[in-house]
């Protein structure tokens, strides 16, 4: 699995499509569940937020579905750089998303960070 992360609006999915020559994208940013038949799954931060709000652990969700995402490109927005949110739910979602990112980065064969549309392999 390849993990691509970076801040909001940095062109992460675009980078994944170009860098790895893939086109089938499942975008979870507006809702839905991962479609593991697609090559790129993006918007994992939003999905992690929704799982967290429903009382589920996003890292556990991925841990138990390992066979499904192996060989895929997973894209997540790093939402961990700002101020700790006052709102309890937003705070929990941010933590869940950060933990998911850490778990996936640990499992990934490659990790790429995207900054201003430019990607860099850091693992």
């Amino acid at each position: 699995m390849i993990l691509v992360f970076g801040g909001a609006y940095q062109g992460k999915t675009e980078y994944a499509v170009k860098e790895f020559g893939l086109s089938a994208v499942c975008d979870l940013s507006e809702g839905g569940e991962p479609d593991f038949t697609k090559e790129i799954i993006t918007g994992l931060d939003a999905f992690a937020s929704r799982l967290s709000a429903a009382g589920e652990d996003p890292a556990e969700y991925f841990r138990s579905r390992r066979g499904l995402w192996e060989g895929k490109v997973l894209v997540i927005t790093d939402t961990t750089q700002g101020v700790v949110p006052v709102d309890r739910e937003v705070r929990a979602a941010r933590e869940a998303s950060g933990r998911l990112m850490m778990y996936l980065a640990g499992e990934a064969e490659q990790v790429h960070r995207v900054f201003c549309g430019i990607g860099k392999r850091i693992k």
Partner: peptide
């Protein structure tokens, strides 16, 4: 400025 790492809406 890199203002893209927040989690709050």
């Amino acid at each position: 400025d890199c203002i893209y790492g927040d989690s709050c809406g």
